[in-house]
């Protein structure tokens, strides 16, 4: 099996999986019906992408691997999502800032992956790109609403930026696998996205007076399988049925 390609697919899919999970926790609890529906939509899009990546990964891995064995039967150290997406739904400002920091990178990444030499990855990127443009529009508009809404919303959003922004650099920092996949013409060189990513993010923040200090959390190594304690609890819920009732059809 092509170990690098398999892991690369997990890096791509796991971000959508864990962020989709975090958003799905909110279903039925949103501040308005409209935002509830919109966040669930984003979650649905992300899980749709997860299925495409994992189905492909299962094909690469072979044996008896399926999209579900990949989604539900790995341990903490075998998930490669960025630390940002496992952060909690502390409040709506955290949800929106987390989403915005992710979407701004996701759109650039997908644009680049549409040119991948790997046809399956290029096709998944093409399909997901439309969705991610909508996600970015939604989250950036909400960053502005909250950042420039009331004093309270500004303060809560500033606090979310301070907590979450230090994790953003992981989204645009290559791991050795990403570097190798780029050399093969399959993956994206994240260095190429950096400038535009930070510009997108900082422009929106500055428009509404949000301050992002140039801090980088040095422990943000999710793409190497080193997570926060939160991931274990996510997996506890996510995997409950598959672990309690192994080898069954649902």
């Amino acid at each position: 099996m092509d170990q690098d390609l398999y892991k690369y697919l997990l890096i791509l899919g796991d971000n959508s999986m864990i962020l989709g999970h975090r958003l799905s926790e909110l279903c039925g609890h949103g501040p308005t019906l409209e935002t509830d529906i919109a966040l669930t939509n984003i979650s649905l899009d992300l899980f749709g992408q997860v299925r495409s990546y994992y189905q492909y990964a299962a094909k690469i891995k072979g044996e008896e691997s399926t999209e579900d064995s990949i989604a539900f039967l790995r341990t903490e150290r075998q998930y490669y999502n960025c630390i940002l997406v496992e952060q909690e739904n502390t409040n709506f400002a955290h949800v929106i800032v987390r989403q915005f920091l992710f979407d701004a990178q996701h759109q650039l990444l997908l644009e680049s992956l549409t040119q991948s030499q790997d046809e399956t990855i290029a096709a998944i990127a093409q399909k997901s790109l439309k969705e991610s443009k909508y996600h970015l529009r939604f989250s950036s508009e909400w960053v502005k609403r909250l950042g420039d809404g009331t004093e309270e919303s500004h303060q809560k959003t500033q606090e979310a930026v301070e907590h979450l922004y230090p994790f953003a650099h992981e989204l645009v920092t290559n791991t050795s696998i990403e570097t190798r996949m780029n050399e093969k013409g399959i993956g994206t060189n994240l260095d190429d996205l950096k400038e535009e990513y930070y510009k997108t993010v900082i422009d929106v923040f500055e428009e509404v007076g949000l301050v992002a200090k140039d801090l980088k959390n040095r422990f943000a190594k999710g793409k190497s399988g080193q997570h926060t304690e939160r991931l274990g609890y996510i997996l506890g819920e996510l995997q409950y049925m598959q672990r309690a009732y192994p080898n069954m059809q649902w």
């Binding site: 935002t35 709506f92 502005k144 909250l146 009331t150 309270e152 919303s153």
Partner: peptide, 11 residues
């Protein structure tokens, strides 16, 4: 969600 709805109206 009250502060979110207030922020949206204010904005």
């Amino acid at each position: 969600g009250a502060w979110v709805r207030e922020a949206a109206v204010a904005y």
